[in-house]
Write a protein that binds this DNA or RNA. Structure first.
Lengths: 222, 222
DNA sequence: AATTATTTTTAGATTTGTCTAATAATCAGT
DNA sequence: ACTGATTATTAGACAAATCTAAAAATAATT
């Protein structure tokens, strides 16, 4: 008898989870309202509901913290979202910038067996097409130490493992310059003047990356 | 800008479509209420809504007929349902008796591109795992002339192309006796006494089929 | 510390889809 | 053609999720 949650509840939980990993402090009503493109009043209402179900810890005017139970639920939704993204890209040959909205729908499909079979079908992937880790059934996931490309020093190298911004224009730009998740990246030079970075991609192509792009590319050193 | 329908509207349309192909006459409020496990009052309310959107033709107390527009919408939902069933059985190795409820959820995912890619990925299947035809993008589908096994005469043979009852117990029974969609079936003898039928399955196995089972198996002669 | 600005919550409405109970229309049997 | 039974519709209520506008709490500024 696994508890069932509404679409709205699931979306709130996911947003709360994401916001609380992005910042250390508790999540504010307004931040949630903005993220979910709704009003602060609606958020207040929903928070009361989620608190009653013990999915969050909530004291009026003090912001929200996600509970252990809430985190468990959120991570399962995120797991589904990312598995479906892998499916869409690997099996249905979508581009990685086209899959987010479809996965937003698919993540709410309720069937533990389906998730298990899908995971198996995809070969138990550990990361989604954007480089984000896929939680396992118990909510655990591998997180590699990551840093922005802009924070690396000349001569350091690593693998491109993720992007900070998942904006579709940005992702298409990456495709165009030939950058993809898993690519080997070596920093050749950092340009003081404008913060841009000269990199060597896959040991064969050198190019300049603007500061804006460099701060949005996540690298694992090793 | 393709019109968007709510989950409820889609489920009503699907039910109306199915009921109106099962019987020639227009669909009654009570029949719909029973099918959708709701009350006649709720059905009345919804019918007004669907009529306003011109998805059905509806005159008070006279039952419903689905409009051309409504049929188009219903067939696209059915298309999605059946494609997902193929996916679940062929790719995720579900049994055919386990897929219906999951497909009931997946059929509401809204993304024309997804449907197109899924269809392609599955190799443009024409029938779902229960033997039901899959409508194409414009709503057309192949329908083979079908008859119940119980209506066939001795020495006639054909292919098992579908089931009338999709009850999970029934489907498992079929698995147990070794009957599956696509199997060759030849009627050896009909037993007057209890209406049971002796058949030859795939030219290699003879067995007795009860009247109940025989009326629920659909055969194409050829 | 007092006042202003910001943030958050409440109060009251609205929409969607549902329900029960009451009413109205149609159908069936004599 | 009438009467009783069946079937369908309306009226009114309710829960979920949202909104606007008003009030309350907290934070910031002088």
């Amino acid at each position: 008898m696994t508890e069932i949650f509404t679409l709205s509840e699931e979306n709130y939980l996911k947003a709360i989870y994401h916001l609380s990993t992005e910042e250390e402090e508790s999540v504010s009503t307004n931040a949630l309202a903005e993220r979910l493109e709704t009003t602060a009043a609606s958020v207040s209402d929903m928070l009361k509901k989620l608190a009653k179900k013990e999915l969050i810890e909530y004291k009026k005017y003090q912001g929200v913290n996600i509970s252990e139970k809430g985190k468990r639920v959120a991570l399962q939704i995120i797991r589904k979202h990312r598995l479906w993204e892998v499916f869409l890209v690997e099996k249905l040959s979508f581009n990685w910038d086209e899959v987010h909205e479809i996965a937003e729908q698919l993540e709410h499909i309720d069937s533990p067996t389906l998730v298990k079979r899908l995971d198996e079908f995809l070969g138990y992937p550990k990361f989604d097409p954007h480089g984000d880790p896929i939680p396992d059934e118990s909510g655990e996931f591998q997180s590699m130490p990551q840093m922005a490309l802009s924070e690396m020093e000349p001569n350091q190298s690593g693998l491109l493992v993720g992007v900070r911004d998942t904006n579709s224009l940005f992702l298409r730009h990456l495709d165009k310059i030939g950058a993809y998740i898993g690519a080997k990246v070596k920093v050749l030079e950092k340009v003081e003047f404008d913060g841009s970075v000269e990199i060597l991609l896959e040991d064969k192509k050198t190019l300049f990356i603007s500061k804006e792009v460099a701060t949005n590319l996540l690298i694992t050193k090793r």
